[in-house]
Design a protein around this nucleic acid. Structure first.
Length: 586
RNA sequence: GCGCCUGUAGCUCAAGCGGAUAGAGCAUCGGCCUUCUAAGCCGAGGGUUGCAGGUUCGAGUCCUGCCAGGCGCGCCA
């Protein structure tokens, strides 16, 4: 419809230019708005105001000219000039009825663009280190990434979703050692737990599984382990130095296979946990990309060679540095350490190169807001690789803070004192969690009100929307109870009987759905969907209360049933994108 | 100190590329169940969009400065 009106205006402008009533060289980018005030019609265009200056004419005069040349359209009932020179369009009844027809014809696919009609997108999200369970901060990234992917798909992009698994670095070693120490504890060896270790309860679970599998094979006397270790922080030492020494000791005492046993057990357990957690949450991925793979398949080496070939590397203090400061970063970065090991950033570059080669379109990085410092360096990396940095896009998801009874719930990861995503899901349910995470703009801090999310009362927006959906099913159950059937052919022929104000509003709102999908995808803002769905549900509730659906008159009844089937379909599609169930009954 | 993000109703937040009288929900107050689910509906009050300038037909939106809050600035991951 928008495109249609745009076309009408462009035609009118064409006539006016041809006839010399407007300057021929006038550059006109027509944009169609949705006016806030219903008094201003269904669509509005400000083109006359934009052209006033370059054409050196009064905006209203231009508007009048355009109206006079506007081709007639079955879909437009009325065009008026209003205010300073806006063109207001009122959609025709014919157009509104066609919305209902379109929805019924295409059902869940209404408003969707054909797959592949838009550029490919590779979206990476969550990518939390597998060193512990996901917490509520990850949950927001998961909800955002999953919903955004769904919207992009609906808007015609081919979307590939990835989770980057950091299974390579020092944090993983710390995890492995934490597991080993808990294992020793289970064996009855009292080794003091490092200040820098992972303390969560889940470490014991992994340790138990290691013990079940390996018995006492990995057991070493506590005394020998502590023998040549420096002081930990609690003893006045440095916790970083201490943990590194402990890792070295573990590697030496356990040997390659023993150490791997702890490492793999930890990695696999964590990954399985995260996977299951996300899957239950409706966040799915097309690929879990292992950082280790980059090393094994030579991608890491290739990326570094690529930077080398571009002349972007130099040696200082025995390390290889990337001259990123010349490519927009605020400082140069080490890619190969003095000890010969590559840095985490080197892996990032290799992964970036791999993604760029696999996806011809845009790479979307969905990061927690605390990672915003990575943006300039990754862009620099793209430039250094000789690629277009504009193919990288960054969406920063701000923090979510949990509130219970008006009080903030604090959290810290290392101590194990954090709220897990799993616990949140258990407490409020997947539906409420998904909806609450997404109902605010992702670039906005989120106050997550646990009491509101668990509320089954009217103030809970998730239930409000779900209830609208369930109510429609309820009407059909009622219909059946009265021994009647919905005849959609009769309904279709009788759509002209839908003359109530609320009926018009519902059709008008559904007509916006394709635009919502488009703009929500373009703006990368799934919360638009949440708002829309809430609004549509509200319109339906009002309608439901004001107008009986199951009336005696066959034509009217079937027409109304057609209308609400369409509403149900759009509600279900919207909820589907948000990852929220659309229940038939509540 | 430097950089990024955010300040909108009592609270939580919307507001497409600068557009018309800044909108919702919650909370508060007042109404609506003999009739398709009251997890609903109808109505009311509530605002100097952090502050000060600037740009223009028009600014919550763009620019500058200030104030307040969050985050980031490792040969960590």
């Amino acid at each position: 419809m928008r495109a249609h009106i745009e076309e009408l205006i462009n035609q009118a402008l064409g006539y006016l230019k041809r006839d010399g009533q407007l300057p021929r060289e006038l550059d006109s980018e027509v944009q169609i708005d949705r006016p806030r005030d219903p008094e201003h019609g269904d669509y509005a265009c400000n083109i006359a105001l934009l052209l006033a200056r370059p054409a050196k004419m009064k905006p209203r005069a231009i508007a009048e000219l355009i109206v006079s040349k506007l081709p007639a359209s079955k879909r437009v009932a009325e065009v008026t000039v209003a205010g300073p020179g806006f063109l207001n369009f009122v959609a025709s009844e014919h157009h509104l009825r066609s919305v209902v027809r379109e929805v019924l014809a295409s059902d869940a696919r209404f408003g969707h663009l054909p797959p592949g009609s838009q550029p490919d997108i590779l979206a990476e999200y969550v990518s939390a280190n597998p060193t512990g369970p996901l917490h509520v901060g990850h949950g927001r990234g998961a909800a955002y990434g999953a919903s955004l992917s769904a919207i992009l798909k609906a808007a015609g992009h081919r979307v590939h979703r990835e989770y980057y698994v950091n299974d390579h670095g020092r944090q993983m070693d710390i995890l492995a050692v934490s597991v080993w120490l808990r294992y020793l504890e289970l064996c009855g060896e009292a080794v003091p737990f490092p200040d820098n270790g992972y303390r969560g309860e889940y470490i014991y679970d992994i340790a138990r599984s290691v013990r079940n599998r390996h018995g006492d094979d990995l057991r070493h006397p506590a005394r020998t382990i502590g023998a040549d270790l420096p002081a930990d922080e609690k003893d006045g030492g440095d916790k970083e130095i201490y943990i590194d020494a402990l890792i070295a000791t573990a590697r030496r005492m356990l040997g390659e296979s023993g150490y791997e046993a702890c490492f793999q057990a930890a990695l696999e357990a964590m990954l399985a946990d995260i996977r299951e957690d996300l899957e239950e949450f409706g966040a799915v991925f097309d690929r879990w990309f292992s950082e280790r793979e980059l090393d094994l398949n030579g991608a890491l080496e290739r990326a570094i060679e690529r930077l080398e070939a571009g002349g972007w590397l130099y040696t200082e203090n025995g390390a290889r540095w990337f001259r990123s400061s010349e490519l927009g970063d605020d400082k140069d970065r080490v890619v190969v350490r003095e000890n010969g090991r590559t840095t985490y950033f080197a892996s990032d570059i290799a992964y970036l190169l791999d993604k760029l080669e696999r996806c011809p379109g845009t790479l979307i990085y969905i990061f927690g807001a605390d990672h915003h410092g990575y943006v300039p360096r990754l862009k620099a990396a793209a430039r250094g690789l000789g690629e277009d940095p504009d193919r990288l896009e960054f969406q920063l998801v701000q923090f979510a803070i949990l509130y219970r009874e008006g009080k903030q719930i604090s959290m810290s990861t290392r101590s194990g004192q954090f709220t897990t995503l799993r616990r949140l899901r258990e407490e409020v349910g997947n539906d409420a969690a998904r909806y609450f995470y997404i109902m605010r703009s992702h670039e906005q801090h989120l106050d997550f009100d646990l009491d509101l999310a668990t509320s089954h009362a009217n103030e809970n927006p998730v239930f409000y929307v779900q209830y609208a959906h369930a109510r429609i099913f309820s009407i059909f159950r009622q219909l059946e109870g009265r021994g009647m059937k919905h005849n959609s052919a009769i309904g279709d022929a009788a759509l002209k009987h839908l003359a109530e104000k609320q009926e018009r509003k519902l059709m008008q709102a559904m007509g916006r759905w394709p635009e919502i999908i488009e703009s929500s995808a373009r703006r990368r803002s799934p919360h638009d969907i949440a708002h829309y769905v809430h609004e549509l549900a509200g319109l339906f509730h009002t309608y439901y209360n004001a107008t009986p659906i199951l009336v005696e008159n066959d034509d009217l009844r079937n027409a109304r049933l057609n209308l609400i089937v369409a509403v149900r379909s759009v509600l279900a599609a919207g909820l589907g994108i948000l990852g929220v169930n659309a229940p038939e009954q509540m």
